[in-house]
Simulated scan of single mutants.
Amino acid sequence: MKDLVKHIVAYAELRNVDTTQLCKLSHIDKKALAKKDGPAPTAAQIGSLWANAIHLTRDKLFGLHFGESLRTTALGIVGSIIQSSATVGEALTHAAALVHVITGQCRMEIVQGKGTFKVILTQTTREGINPLMEVFMVIVIHELDGLLLTKITPKAVALPYKVTDPVEYARVFRCAPVKSNGEYSITLSAQYWEEPILTANYQLQEILLQQTSHLPKPDNKTQLLGARIHNYLLANSYLGLASLNDIASNFNMSARTLQRQLKNEGSSYQHIADTVKRSLAEHYIASGNFALKDISWMLGYNELSAFSRAFKKWTGVSPESFG
């Protein structure tokens, strides 16, 4: 759980929270958290961290948005499972058996149905509703995205309570959640079960994550919204760049407010997105590891010609002539 706490703190910083204050309020030693041999935060400290993060970000759906931001870091959780599984069904079965290694706060089981299968997460802690359960559910969906290198759509999502913002939950889970009798579950079409996991997919994910992690990032100390959005887009780029509406929702504001704040900074979402795409495109081309059609696809272009036009607009030269 220590790594997960680090991710919570990092996401809070991305959301412009003073993480020194956040850790102090939560009775967590920030310096010890950064050390490999430092003590792991207690359950009480994690609960306090969660409550303080919600308060400081003014985001009641902090957990939902945090889970959404974990798509790149979450891939590492089941990296070895991906490599040893032939299909999505095998990977999920192995993950269910090993979830206790990742966290002691829930267990996972797979239930087959007619034309569907269900991923059920059961809370193992006794204290009321654990906000991390939503995080784990979103991670499952994003892990499946990573296994297939495409965005999957659940047939149903069930939570043991009535959600406060159905529209936002539907956006993150990609379907409207329903209230269940104590069950956290994700129901998926059986077609996903036998989908093959290609080693090439896993290797591509690893390459993308490694290369984007070494790209220069704006200094978060500037506290500018544009810099924080740039970092978010760069860190979560392996399945294409998030839309304006998704970014605005994750940062707990309307798209109009986000655009207005960026305009006050002399920027825009489109400018930031183009800057990230250009940075990634130049990096991928310079690496010599990818064909142009693959780079075009990775950056979200359906046609190589559209990518070539955009690249020439950014740099003044064609992708073939770059470098």
Results as ranks from 00 to 15, higher is better:
1 M>V: 15
5 V>G: 00
10 A>K: 03
11 Y>D: 02
12 A>I: 12
17 V>K: 04
21 Q>P: 00
22 L>K: 04
24 K>Q: 13
27 H>K: 15
28 I>W: 13
29 D>V: 13
32 A>Q: 13
34 A>S: 08
35 K>C: 01
38 G>C: 04
38 G>S: 10
38 G>L: 08
45 Q>C: 12
46 I>S: 01
47 G>E: 15
49 L>Y: 05
50 W>P: 00
54 I>G: 01
57 T>S: 03
58 R>Q: 11
60 K>C: 02
61 L>Y: 01
62 F>S: 03
63 G>E: 01
67 G>A: 01
68 E>N: 13
73 T>A: 10
74 A>H: 00
78 V>T: 09
80 S>T: 00
80 S>W: 15
81 I>V: 07
81 I>H: 12
84 S>K: 11
87 T>A: 02
89 G>S: 14
92 L>G: 04
93 T>W: 05
98 L>D: 07
100 H>R: 00
101 V>C: 05
105 Q>A: 03
106 C>W: 12
112 Q>N: 15
112 Q>W: 12
114 K>V: 10
114 K>R: 12
115 G>C: 15
119 V>T: 13
119 V>H: 03
120 I>L: 07
122 T>Y: 11
123 Q>A: 14
130 N>S: 09
133 M>Q: 07
133 M>T: 09
134 E>S: 05
134 E>N: 01
134 E>M: 02
141 I>S: 06
147 L>D: 00
147 L>A: 05
147 L>G: 01
148 L>F: 12
151 K>E: 08
151 K>R: 09
154 P>E: 10
157 V>Q: 02
158 A>M: 15
159 L>I: 09
161 Y>M: 09
161 Y>I: 08
164 T>H: 11
165 D>W: 15
166 P>C: 06
166 P>R: 09
166 P>Q: 05
167 V>I: 02
167 V>Y: 08
174 R>E: 07
175 C>E: 09
176 A>E: 15
178 V>G: 08
180 S>G: 07
184 Y>E: 00
185 S>C: 08
189 S>T: 11
191 Q>E: 04
191 Q>N: 08
194 E>H: 13
195 E>R: 02
200 A>M: 14
200 A>E: 12
202 Y>R: 05
206 E>L: 10
208 L>Y: 04
209 L>D: 07
212 T>A: 08
213 S>Q: 00
214 H>Y: 14
215 L>E: 11
216 P>G: 05
216 P>L: 12
217 K>V: 09
222 T>W: 14
222 T>Q: 08
228 R>V: 04
228 R>P: 01
229 I>Q: 06
230 H>C: 03
234 L>D: 06
238 Y>A: 08
238 Y>G: 07
241 L>I: 14
244 L>I: 08
247 I>L: 03
249 S>P: 10
250 N>D: 07
252 N>R: 02
252 N>I: 01
253 M>W: 09
256 R>T: 14
257 T>V: 15
262 L>V: 11
265 E>I: 12
272 I>H: 03
273 A>M: 01
275 T>Y: 01
289 N>I: 11
290 F>L: 06
292 L>G: 02
294 D>P: 06
294 D>E: 14
299 L>N: 03
302 N>F: 15
304 L>Q: 11
308 S>W: 15
309 R>E: 14
314 W>R: 01
314 W>A: 03
319 P>W: 15
323 G>M: 12
